[in-house]
Simulated scan of single mutants.
Amino acid sequence: MKSSVAKIIFLVPIISILFFPISSSLALILGFVYALLFKHPFKQSCHKAIHHFLKISVIGLGFGMFIKETITTSKQGFSLTFFSIILTVSLGLLLTKLFKLDKKLGHLITSGTSVCGGSAIAAISPVIKANNNAISVALGIVFLLNSIALFVFPAIGHWKHLTQEQFGLWCAIAIHDTSSVVGAALGYGEEALRVATTVKLSRTLWIIPLSVLSMIIFKTEGEKIKIPYFILLFILAIFINSYHIIPTSITNEIVFYAKKLLVLTLFLVGSTISINDLKSTGIKPMFVAISLWIFISLFSYLYITYNM
């Protein structure tokens, strides 16, 4: 009986998101509240859905962008992306050693913080042959910090009167997962959303050199590097929109439903956050993760406000 009720209630926010204007932050809260009150009947399916829905929604957002603006934005964010990754990875290696944290767990947390959250953890974990416990702990911490960022960053952005361009760039650098980056920028403005999506996806490509570095550090051989191929489809969508291959009325609809799908994805993310997993992580992994997050947030904020 409880399982049936949980399944029915799970569908209510999904239907609401699809047919009514629900914000990204509210969707995440609804998911988190659901996780607190019910035993998730579709948890494994949701993990798979999050993985696919995020990629589809990001590709859909590409139909609202143009080549020239995208290239300009990518160039603007390149130096900040480069320095933030180098410094964060270096600090992560230092803190892992300093606090005598499990080397592979520390590296996964560092990878998720420096590049792109869950995607980086998923890509790096087979390269360094991390065990399931290390992967679960790293993902749990990253998802928790992403959830906090979704509320904190827009509030700080408005408080400090950041422009949409500044806020979009800050989100792309300092928030881990693409879903939370786009979710935070979604309510800030169209320009913030465009900048955040473009810079974050170009940042995702750094998974490749980070995977190579991971192979060197952990001396692993013969492991395949996962290349985020969906970025190519995102670029293709930008080309299609830039050259008006598809009528504007259709691309507008695609972007509209891509945003809806992203909000739905954030609800699913919230619903899969496990309090028990977070409690079992211990103080050291959480402290390292928060330290890295504060560092990359402050570094990128100061860089952006003094250079833009």
Rank of each mutant, 00 (worst) to 15 (best):
A49D: 06
S136M: 05
L302D: 04
G92T: 03
L186E: 07
K39C: 06
V182H: 05
I175H: 01
L298S: 01
F42L: 14
A155F: 03
L91C: 05
E253S: 14
K7C: 06
L162Q: 08
S111E: 02
P126I: 04
I128N: 00
L266H: 02
S57Y: 00
F10C: 05
L87F: 07
I238V: 15
S57L: 02
S84G: 04
P247H: 15
L268P: 03
F239M: 14
F239V: 12
A196G: 05
K260I: 11
L213G: 04
K97S: 14
K2E: 15
V269A: 07
A49E: 03
G64V: 06
S3Y: 10
L262N: 02
I156T: 01
K224A: 13
L232I: 08
L233S: 09
C171P: 01
T265P: 08
A122N: 12
T265I: 07
I275E: 05
I135A: 06
S45C: 05
F82W: 01
T251Q: 09
F19M: 09
I71C: 11
V127F: 09
L205C: 04
W293Y: 10
I59L: 04
P247F: 07
I71Q: 04
I304L: 02
L205G: 03
F151A: 01
R203Q: 02
T72E: 15
L266W: 02
A184C: 00
I245V: 14
S136Y: 06
K68I: 13
L205V: 08
G77D: 06
G64Q: 11
G77H: 00
I9T: 10
L262A: 01
L94E: 09
A289G: 11
L37P: 04
V263C: 10
T113K: 05
A258N: 12
S45D: 12
E191L: 14
T251L: 10
F32I: 13
A185M: 08
I207L: 11
